[in-house]
Design a protein around this nucleic acid. Sequence first.
DNA 1: ATTCGCATTTAGATCGTTCTAAATCGAGAA
DNA 2: TTCTCGATTTAGAACGATCTAAATGCGAAT
Lengths: 335, 335
Amino acid sequence: MQQKRVTLEEIAQAAGVSRATVSLVVRKSPLVAGHTRERVEQIMAQMDYVRDIGAARLRNRSSQTIGVIVPNLVNSFFTEFLSGVEEVMARDDRVVLLANSHDDPRRQDEILQRFRGHGVDGVILCPAVGTGPELPGRIAGWGMPLVQALREVGPPTDFAGADYITAVGLAMRHLVEQGHRRVAFLSVSARTSAREERLTGYARALAETGVEDAGIVEADLTWEGAAQSAAQILALHTRPDAVLCFNDVLAAGLMAGLRRAGCEPGRDLAVVGLDDLPLAELTYPPLTSVAMDAPGIGRKAARLLARRLADDAAPPERDIVVPRLVVRDSSPQKV
Amino acid sequence: MQQKRVTLEEIAQAAGVSRATVSLVVRKSPLVAGHTRERVEQIMAQMDYVRDIGAARLRNRSSQTIGVIVPNLVNSFFTEFLSGVEEVMARDDRVVLLANSHDDPRRQDEILQRFRGHGVDGVILCPAVGTGPELPGRIAGWGMPLVQALREVGPPTDFAGADYITAVGLAMRHLVEQGHRRVAFLSVSARTSAREERLTGYARALAETGVEDAGIVEADLTWEGAAQSAAQILALHTRPDAVLCFNDVLAAGLMAGLRRAGCEPGRDLAVVGLDDLPLAELTYPPLTSVAMDAPGIGRKAARLLARRLADDAAPPERDIVVPRLVVRDSSPQKV
DNA sequence: ATTCGCATTTAGATCGTTCTAAATCGAGAA
DNA sequence: TTCTCGATTTAGAACGATCTAAATGCGAAT
């Protein structure tokens, strides 16, 4: 902003009223008389007045700005989540400060300080791997409303996420229906609540269905990591007839790795992903997955934060999307 | 921010100096004496002082905030671009306001007004489809530094993008080397500079290589759109032996559509994408594509804006990444 | 002792808004 | 005519920083 702004004062001058009155018009207060309002609004339009929200915040402590911290912008699950957040915030005329923690708690701290300096009204945080359980408390101590999303640390706060326990259950029951009896789980090494939840779901689903656990293999959360793990999967003591994957990226990588190893995914080994990212339709064979509605989670997180801003005394709330199985070709009926 | 802030005044009080001195310390001015600086810094740390950047901006007109407007958050090209921008901005201690225009010029206008209200230092804009050529001028009129990215409208401004003309040429020469002689182009319906550029590249490459133009087919910029266009491609008057696609998403969709229609991509018809998104490795067959380094473009855009903020009189600059061919299996040697 | 120059510190105005408390205006009641 | 009351409008002090211009302290030069 090099150009100098049109200010309330100038509008007031032009309209022959006081600054305070113009301010009331801007804020759509019912106090101003109809004719005054009209005249002032007209002049504001003419002079291209833009309210300075920063200056406003200085007085009324509301910046109409919220911060979002994600651990990565490559995995499309997070970007879809982000798009849901942005959508709701834009609708409420709020603005989104975006930052990427790269799953590093130190960077995450820096970002939080930066956000604090910018006076955000609140934060939606997907905690970085290794975030200590005291962080939500610290944030609360700053008087900064917080919603956790997708991952969770510390004592209960507002939280929007997905029910991966149910999701894994859906996937497992589907595999059973398709005739599979020995299932492996392709997990990740990074310790997050998201990982724990899926492993819990896996254990529970094994118990409920009586399926044989062929083993748990860990991979880096990348395409190559998963491709490389194909060999380990194939070398498991009890050779699985299906693999359930931490998410679609790993599933897609695994399928590529399997094919490289001479094992045709779908035909020789069923593969199921989680999240149902757009890429699930583009793999070959198209990937059976469990849809988590990432944008929906983003929208929920945004609404939770909006609610919290309206009422800071409300008890913490959890908003969880229900997963939906999407059957494609990577998990055909066993012959 | 419910809690009341620790202010300069309070720090000054505690340190027994004036507000002005503390301000100098905060801004790392060389004017303050070493011992004063130390004492003040220590007290700031103790009292958990956080500088209010909004208040600062009111005086010094620099918010350390920049806006980024992308037309969509689903296509990972844009999110990778975004991640590049965020990375550089975070390094410079700036904060990124993110908004999604959904390729709608009206929303784009609203966003710009919102950004204006928030006093952003500048904007990185990927113009929505249908953006009028006068927009950059209007933005300049507000005194808002602008960098266009990926797409471009109006008279020259700072611009960071990719050289799709060269990219298409690379792809075409590769196809020729692989023995293909009749090539079709799968384009999109939305009119953007990105589209024009690729079509220009296509025409130029045809002329340079003497390849036969099998025709141009338009599709929606979605996976399904491309899949549906497979039929049209196969029905072209001169049946192509290779298809060059607007981007990887279309290429992946096309491959799925071809397979549905009984035509094996790679074997029966070569397919080449543009952008080299991560998904190019996950399709089957893995997709030959031309890497555009989206995060790199984002970083360039961020640096252009930083430069512009430092010197608003500098002449407009263009920063273009050079494309790199990535050969995979979707474009094998013709037998 | 006085003056000068340099390094350091500071008072006070200012940025553009909102808030508080009080002023002003008309019209109907007394 | 004067008073009261609700409806409007307003002056002036915030908010938390930065800027300008001037003040202060101190050792060296005169």
